[in-house]
Design a binder for these strands. Structure first.
Lengths: 134, 134
DNA sequence: TAAAACTCTGTACCTGTATACGGGGTTTAT
DNA sequence: ATAAACCCCGTATACAGGTACAGAGTTTTA
């Protein structure tokens, strides 16, 4: 039945999570990771699931979320269920819009690519297209 | 048969191109717009097609290119179509991946939203999920 | 037990993408 | 002809997202 909770110092945490140590301090400064209290003696101990939180942050960043938005996502955990649900719905709607925008970009790029691929023309159609027409 | 070439001062150029005047100076500093020589007296005159170049830059930014990448695109110039095409392909692939990732996140959020909506449970499923395990 | 490796705190610096400001000079409009 | 509007130049500032470093203390390890 042990209640042993594994903890890490900041350097180990950084290595395990695959980020720079200073990045963790930065995340603490901007409030998306909480800083454990400094023990009377020794170093701060970070719970092992902080690794998961860092992965969550990094994954969200890859999806195009700013740290500010990630902070909001993380704060979804702060309210009551219905509030949380509302915010999740809002976030979902934002994501749906982002997907639509990205799809439009993809189509544009695809048109440019195929125009470009259809022959050895003197002027690149991509350059032509981007340069004019607005 | 006049060879009249229309030119603009920087402020007019900025208004026509729909950008801040300082943005144009900035683009000059980073080398993606060339700065006309200062005439012995009077103001610098910008050729009208600088408007097109600014549109090219803005349009490319919307497609997700950084100014650095745009500089490279511009340096490829005419004729090197296949290089430009390669870059566009690479960018498209990046976007396709982003879309897939966003769709996965949307699905996740959708699951959370419906789990949350299906009853007044003691623990909010969204809170639970975000709090651990990602 | 001493050296190496690590942490803590505070502050400084970096890149990218701009935008703003001050104190001049120039052009245009009235 | 004079005020308003505009340009020039250099410097400063902003914001996001980090990264670096110095100097002192702590822990680990050889």
């Amino acid at each position: 039945m042990s209640g042993e909770i594994k903890t890490l110092t900041i350097g180990r945490l950084a290595r395990k999570a695959g980020v720079n140590l200073e990045t963790i301090r930065y995340y603490q400064r901007v409030g998306i990771i909480s800083e454990p209290a400094k023990p009377l003696q020794g170093y701060r101990q970070y719970p092992a699931d902080t690794i998961d939180r860092i992965h969550f942050i990094k994954r969200s960043q890859q999806l195009g979320f700013s740290l500010q938005e990630i902070a909001e996502l993380l704060q979804l955990g702060d309210g009551h269920c219905s509030d949380v649900r509302q915010r999740a719905i809002h976030k979902r709607d934002t994501i749906v819009q982002q997907i639509a925008d990205l799809n439009a970009l993809k189509d544009t790029l695809e048109n440019l690519i195929s125009a470009c691929g259809s022959g050895g023309q003197a002027h690149c159609p991509i350059v032509e297209t981007l340069a004019s027409r607005h």
